[in-house]
Design a protein around this nucleic acid. Sequence first.
RNA 1: GCCGAGGUAGCUCAGUUGGUAGAGCACUUGACUGAAAAUCAAGGUGUCACCAGUUCGAUUCUGGUCCUCGGCA
Length: 312
Amino acid sequence: MNHKPVIAIIGPTGVGKTAISLGLADMYKGEIVSADSRLVYRGMNIGTAKPTLAEQKRVRHHLIDVVEPADDWNLAKYQFAAGVAIENSHNRGKIPFLVGGTGQYITAVLEGWTPPPKSQDIDYRSSLETQAQEMGYENLHRRLEIIDPVSAERIDARNVRRVIRALEIHHVTGLPPSQLRIKSPPDFEILKIGLMLPRDQLYARIDARIEEMMEAGWLDEVETLLSLNIPQGAPSMSAIGYAQLAEYLQGDMELDEALAETRRLTRQFIRRQANWFKPDDPSILWFTNDEGVEEEIERCISTWIDTVPTEA
RNA sequence: GCCGAGGUAGCUCAGUUGGUAGAGCACUUGACUGAAAAUCAAGGUGUCACCAGUUCGAUUCUGGUCCUCGGCA
């Protein structure tokens, strides 16, 4: 198979990506490759709005439930696994639908980011974290200026996490990180479908969805996670809502406050997500998710498929 | 009804010894190449309750009015 179609369904949390992509994947013999940094964790179902088991059965899904909440997960692992999933779908003659709300993951896959292999050194990283606390963030940034002025220019000194990552890359590879920001775009035929809704509608949907999650037993889910003794600071437990409900369960916050905080953080998240995919991006076909969108998108996909070069 | 406290940004409040005002949060925008639901940055906002007086000038001082919250009847 030499034509490699990939259909990306993008949009903020709560806009309705899951429902629509399920219908589309059904219709076009697709498989869903999740692009979501929280759906990878087993046992985090309700609060992540993970597709149900029935839904996962209806259409083949990838990159859901692939690690434990205590495990390490990152962009490099995602990119590798997504690459495999996409290739396998193609080999089966299926169209992979890249669906999710993690802009970094989607962009990395579609643009073919190639971060240096094996550039992680957790010990070095934590020693820098200690230094940042003891000597201040300016100190680390000054060091970055010396080894890589280009990165130092791009990264705000106060963004300690990123300054440290840049120093870490240099420490492991011996090269300035700015020279390692390479893209090698994959040879996919890409269609990007964007789903959107006006902010106020989106916010209202989110508020309602949080209520539904609570009724569905979100608290119990968080309680179970707490019983697993996940290490402090594990990315999984930094998920919106999970962190707040954990605080409530540990007696550090009122439930009302935890839920209000969750709504607030979700709204901020929606705005941050919007930075990855802009309404004026000519490579994205945007649709407002109201009555009849699915038909509109189907027409659009059908037309597009006809233009994809096929094997002779 | 009396006594006390107060009315300043969407919210919680600070402040101006008289020169028309500011923090946090909310909200909006942006960055992002191995934590990304993470991390970080930038930004606007006001009849300073109302009316009058003193003053070159009042949100600030004085008087009155209205409203809110306590306490007492």
